[in-house]
Computed example of a mutant assay.
Amino acid sequence: MADETVDENDPVVVTKIEYKGTKVSVLEDVYEPAEDTFLMADCAVKEFSDYEKNSGNARHAEQFELDDPFSALEVGCGSGFVSAFLLNHFSDLDLIAVDINPNAVKCAQMNGVRAFESDMFDIFEKSRHLRSIDTPIEDVSPSKPPLGFDLILFNPPYLPTSEDEKVSGMLNYAFDGGVTGRDSIDRFLKEVGDYLKSDGFFLLLISSITGLDETVTEMKKNGFSAEVVGTKKCSFEELIVLKGKRL
């Protein structure tokens, strides 16, 4: 029997997680699915199911071919659990996931998610630029759907973090929200409109630590309504999922 060799550079699985029938493996330096992940996953399935039912007939009648799939993007996918959970419920969903942490991208891919390394939406801007100058790019490079995504998900790093509170390694990306905890949230709200379909929606998970009123104000400032679609008490904070649609 041949000896199995292990490359020291191969990612190491540190744990496996299962929730409501969806199983993922989690690699080193990747955020382990927890209460916030499961809350987002449950909200995503419920809200997308409602959206699919309510907009399906209209979107096909007005501007789509019957076989055009609904599209979704998860920003900051981590292990890929939320995306995998969605795909288990909506197998025809055209879903792309991105994360700034390359280990998270490897992890999500290992868990069956079409994931790419990107700082938020940067990968789509790069792809758009290359296409605009007719530069050959790989077929696997993701691009924004012509009319935007139906659903965009973001469970951001929301903990207020000073320099001495940073976590070592790439895992810091999952926790570090800047001094106020709002760095990634505010950037997301400024940029998300460029990638969202006119009748689409996004789900944003925040903590009571981050500030619900401040986030709602920022959403409205950027042209979005704000609806609380899920909450969960969790030790010292309350987790909140906000749904945003164009005003």
Results as ranks from 00 to 15, higher is better:
5 T>S: 06
6 V>S: 09
13 V>E: 10
14 V>W: 15
14 V>E: 10
18 E>Y: 10
20 K>N: 14
25 S>N: 07
30 V>N: 08
31 Y>V: 02
32 E>P: 00
33 P>D: 13
35 E>L: 03
38 F>S: 02
46 K>Q: 06
50 D>I: 06
54 N>P: 01
58 A>N: 08
63 Q>F: 15
63 Q>G: 13
64 F>A: 11
64 F>S: 05
69 P>V: 05
74 E>N: 09
77 C>K: 14
79 S>I: 02
81 F>C: 10
82 V>T: 12
83 S>L: 06
85 F>W: 13
91 S>N: 08
92 D>K: 09
94 D>Y: 15
101 N>G: 02
104 A>C: 11
106 K>N: 14
106 K>E: 12
111 N>T: 06
123 I>Y: 10
125 E>A: 05
126 K>I: 07
129 H>K: 12
140 V>G: 14
142 P>R: 00
143 S>D: 14
143 S>N: 11
157 P>Y: 07
164 D>N: 08
167 V>L: 15
169 G>D: 15
170 M>T: 06
177 G>F: 14
184 S>W: 01
185 I>K: 01
186 D>P: 00
203 L>K: 03
203 L>T: 04
208 S>T: 14
209 I>K: 09
213 D>F: 02
218 E>T: 09
219 M>I: 04
222 N>K: 00
227 E>N: 11
227 E>V: 09
229 V>S: 10
229 V>Y: 07
237 E>G: 00
240 I>G: 01
244 G>N: 06
245 K>A: 09
246 R>E: 14
